[in-house]
Design a protein around this nucleic acid. Structure first.
Lengths: 357, 357
DNA sequence: GTGAAAGCGCTAACAC
DNA sequence: GTGTTAGCGCTTTCAC
């Protein structure tokens, strides 16, 4: 057994090419290519020699060269605001898993809410010939947004790729996009209805950015639930911040300092609820004894808050998988889909009946 | 101004090449390339025409073709077990930000602890000519692990890339890797010492997998803190699970059911602590009144547990940035570095003095 | 200043 | 079965 020594890779040469392997195996480059592709008849002897050379040189075919030659690994891009937020992290996980299952490579980019970064990344993805770009998370639904996004959708489409909007404002008819929404308004409506059904009448809303579609959807649900009962919520009870834990904490402290009157709180996200809960505890208030609290997203941690948080479940991981499947499911010419995923409220311990009056 | 109409991109043609642009601008491909590269003298008039053609056709140079030609966007790969875990998500964020800052593209892959997936991904990254591959998170430190990882390090190195081990078992001398560790043992030691200093003598340890280096490092710290005080912890107080919230919850329930005696708990991660805390609450136990609890990682949520969790701070995001910087900082020939990052305990409310005896 | 030609590493059509 | 050739989209000498 000659040459069976351990790693006999090429000493210093940066990386070996298919021709190096061919030379070593005493065949042509095409033969190596064929052996590696495996979809072509090659004599057993040759195959063995080639395979051995490959192993000895620790050869891997250059992915870029393959791509240029038209047989690259398909790639998928996932763009979110912050990988650190638990809900989108779960979605990223779903995307990544499903992409892998479908033999795609997936790139993740968090933009920190920076539109320029987002744009740059998408451009990069177009250059990478990404099969699809999934944009997730609410955004300000302005005319500029629609125009800009539309342009992105068009150029992606014209390059044979596809834009998927997930929880993002749709673009109006005719745009070559797939949009998947999870029902923010419906979920918030159901949640607020649950709180109102417990007898609460002054419900504080800890919302997100005033032009952010996710935030607004949830706010609309909160409002709608009131109106469905013939109630008109006090505008002073609608607070705005962002979706972070710190925002919830700060907003709650302010509300307390301003001596706003309320017996329950609906937070725009579980993170916000977590911060609010801590502020409540710091103020010595009992939840849900003195004040009820509800969140949104059902992140795993929600169960470990004390009291366990009543919230709205959003199937983020599944959402990620679905986004990938629909994005990849059809060519650019397919009908432009619009999916709306349902959510449901999960009742735990943080909302109690409003006993006093 | 003729031809200033809106998006005048190529109707159906999949994607336009540099030659299409050249044709439209009435120049050669090289000229287009030069204009786009911007590092070469080109007459103002030509430049304008080319730029206009580029805009009109919405052209982006193919990243793969550039890569093959030797001028690709450098790429960096980040491999973790689970993007969903808060600590590594923060690290992923750090990696991604720093990579972007340095003009690198970054690929993230979560393996779900599957070694095969890990291997496949690394192979893929080698094919992509990734500038570096960052592996993060503990692993079983077996001979197979060392051999396998060493082989990866070698083949990455021989391809001009580099392996970075982050919080992973090092490979012994001579391996072409950069290893960055955060001091698990030291942190756990300090934390346990803090608990012991509060007078606790029977402290339950909610650990991770028995062969997992991170888990073991923390366990060693726990042990060492005892011994430094001349104490020998009861082996029955060392429980093993994994790093999830559910593991903490389950382990805690079992400990309670088995009526283990202890006055404090040290959990291997904040997630584990969160689950344990809920189990404690479910059992009607007061924390820290009846039993103290400490975690590890200092995830943002730790503050929102009730009581706020005493834990060990690990600068995950910074860790990610650092990993990128050192990975990119030097060629494959540089000295093999070994960094050990310090941690510190952050005292909050979940650990109290052991009053009774 | 600009174009023609060669070449990056690979695959695929076309010989033999 | 296997080698030769052309070509993927780009950059980069090398001429002019």
């Amino acid at each position: 057994m000659p040459g069976v020594g351990l790693t006999r890779k090429n000493g210093e040469a940066g990386r070996s090419t298919i021709r190096d392997v061919a030379a070593r195996a005493g065949v042509s480059a095409s033969t190596v290519s064929r052996v590696l592709a495996g979809d072509y008849p090659v004599s057993a002897a040759t195959r063995t020699r080639v395979l051995r050379a490959v192993r000895e040189m620790d050869y891997v075919a250059d992915a870029h060269a393959k791509a240029v030659a038209g047989v690259g690994t398909p790639t998928l891009a996932f763009v979110l605001e912050d990988i650190t937020g638990p809900s989108f992290a779960h979605m990223a996980h779903g995307v990544e898993r499903e992409a892998a299952r479908l033999g795609h490579l997936s790139l993740v980019c968090s933009t920190d809410g920076d539109v320029r970064r987002e744009l740059e990344f998408i451009e990069m993805m177009r250059a990478q010939r990404a099969a699809a770009v999934i944009l997730v998370g609410g955004a300000a639904d302005t005319p500029e947004y629609r125009e800009r996004t539309r342009r992105i959708a068009d150029s992606l489409a014209s390059a044979g790729s596809r834009l998927v909007l997930c929880g993002r404002p749709p673009l109006g008819p005719g745009a070559p996009v797939t949009v998947i929404e999870y029902d923010n308004e419906g979920g918030a409506h159901a949640l607020a209805a649950h709180v109102l059904a417990q007898g609460h009448r002054r419900v504080l809303f800890l919302g997100g950015k005033p032009d952010h579609t996710t935030a607004m959807g949830r706010e609309r649900g909160y409002l709608a639930a009131h109106r469905a009962r013939g109630l008109e919520p006090d505008p002073a009870l609608l607070l705005h911040g962002d979706f972070t834990r710190d925002s919830g904490h700060r907003l709650m402290r302010e509300a307390l300092a301003r001596k706003l009157e309320f017996t329950a709180i609906v937070a725009a996200t579980d993170m916000v609820a977590a911060g609010a809960l801590t502020a409540l505890h710091e103020a010595g208030l009992d939840v849900p004894g003195e004040v009820s609290l509800a969140g949104y997203d059902d992140i795993p941690f929600a169960r470990d808050l004390h009291p366990a948080l009543t919230t709205v479940h959003v199937p983020y991981e599944e959402l990620g998988r679905l986004a990938v499947r629909t994005a990849l499911g059809h060519g650019a010419e397919s009908a432009d889909e619009h999916l709306l995923l349902g959510t449901h409220v999960v009742v735990r311990d943080s909302v109690a009946a409003h006993s006093g009056h």
